[in-house]
């Protein structure tokens, strides 16, 4: 996964300074990613990757882990 996105998630959304503590399949929602965090994440992805993420796809299934976020972005590239 894009390092910039990964560090954004850990720095800004789940408040862990060190992403290495976390595997690509660990649960981000349990780690503290909340609705405001999801909003920030979606805006960040859209800006950085130039994709449009459909409103109805903004849901836990696509956001729960780093792997799911990656494949969500890939589907819209």
């Amino acid at each position: 996964m894009n390092d910039e996105l990964k560090s954004f998630i850990f720095r800004e959304l789940v408040h862990l300074p060190d992403a290495t503590l976390f595997s690509d399949d660990d649960d981000l929602l349990e780690a503290g990613l909340d609705s405001m965090g999801i909003m920030r994440l979606v805006l960040f992805i859209e800006e950085k990757f130039g994709v449009t993420l459909p409103d109805e796809e903004i849901e836990p299934d696509n956001i729960q882990t780093l792997n799911r976020i990656s494949s969500w972005i890939e589907r819209h590239r």
Binding site: H15, P17, D18, D34
Partner: peptide, 22 residues
């Protein structure tokens, strides 16, 4: 040790009280 400070904050403060930047 920023990691340990983060863990300390998580143990003692509600999620909405976590600073997003230190």
């Amino acid at each position: 040790a920023l990691n340990e400070l983060r863990i300390h904050l998580k143990q003692n403060l509600a999620p909405y009280m976590q600073p997003y930047r230190i």
